[in-house]
Design a protein around this nucleic acid. Structure first.
Lengths: 143, 143
DNA sequence: TTATTAGATAATAATCATTATTATTTAAGA
DNA sequence: TCTTAAATAATAATGATTATTATCTAATAA
């Protein structure tokens, strides 16, 4: 989704288009590492030093309402925001919290077979796979 | 896991066996609805009126360390505790928060194929599928 | 059986991510 | 430009979870 599409999408839903909003949306929608609100805040602050953390939270809520990002809640770290809403696996390191997407046609295909198996109509899904990242498994193999 | 196995497990790890601990463990390990800490607290209070919420949290942490329960963090509700650690789907209602397990041999088999596809070695996983429960979809079909 | 003590409990204070509030500012249409 | 409803920045409030601490007790040994 490019900037013009985003602007159109916001206006069509009656939301105003502000520079802060564009900056936050661009950042999160192009992110690959599922940043937290704080991380987004720190990043956007580089361009908008006066921006408020509350604005970040409000904008993230807006993107959730538009169905453009999914909020991933955790018990051991603050929420992370995922702009990828097609079925994929969030590969998560239980030690450092790093997250990346594993996305492949076969994963999607197999997931659809699982869904068919359940007979349920999913609105969305969240597939988390916990495994030590390379860095953490090297640093301290057996904690 | 019966009470004797639980007691042995606790003692073998150097944890003391207390009546409160047994009550909390029994409750969570036999639960099917992934209760929250508060729900467990309210339930155990019926037998142990003087029990502290802190004790519930400490015991849940202990069960996590033993690998007997998984804590499921959410962004829109407090954590829920899941005693089922084999691959299964948490079917979650996005409106009322109700959770139940969908567990079937085929789901497990397909999930293992997905894992094989990724080439990753999972320590654990969490598979959430969001769909309106019967009650909520009847009450207000289109919000 | 009793004494000892490390760990557990109950009560409650502290933390911190997130949400709510409010005065001020601004986007967008008239 | 003018108007105004919505957005922003600043900050207070909330609430789940964690930390602290003064008893209390399970488990071991005398």
């Amino acid at each position: 989704m490019n900037e013009q599409q985003l602007i159109t999408r916001l206006r069509s839903k009656g939301y105003k288009v502000t520079p802060q909003r564009i900056a936050i949306c661009q950042l999160i929608l192009s992110s690959k590492d599922h940043p937290s609100a704080e991380q987004i805040y720190q990043e956007v602050k580089k361009t908008y030093p006066a921006i408020s953390l509350a604005t970040v939270y409000i904008t993230l809520d807006l993107l959730k309402k538009l169905g453009l990002v999914q909020e991933l809640g955790f018990s051991d770290q603050s929420s992370r925001y995922d702009p990828n809403n097609s079925p994929h696996i969030n590969v998560i390191c239980p030690r450092c919290g790093k997250i990346y997407d594993y996305e492949a046609p076969n994963v999607k295909k197999l997931w659809y077979r699982i869904i068919a198996e359940t007979g349920l109509k999913p609105l969305r899904q969240r597939l988390d796979l916990y495994t030590l990242c390379n860095k953490c498994s090297q640093e301290n193999p057996t904690p």
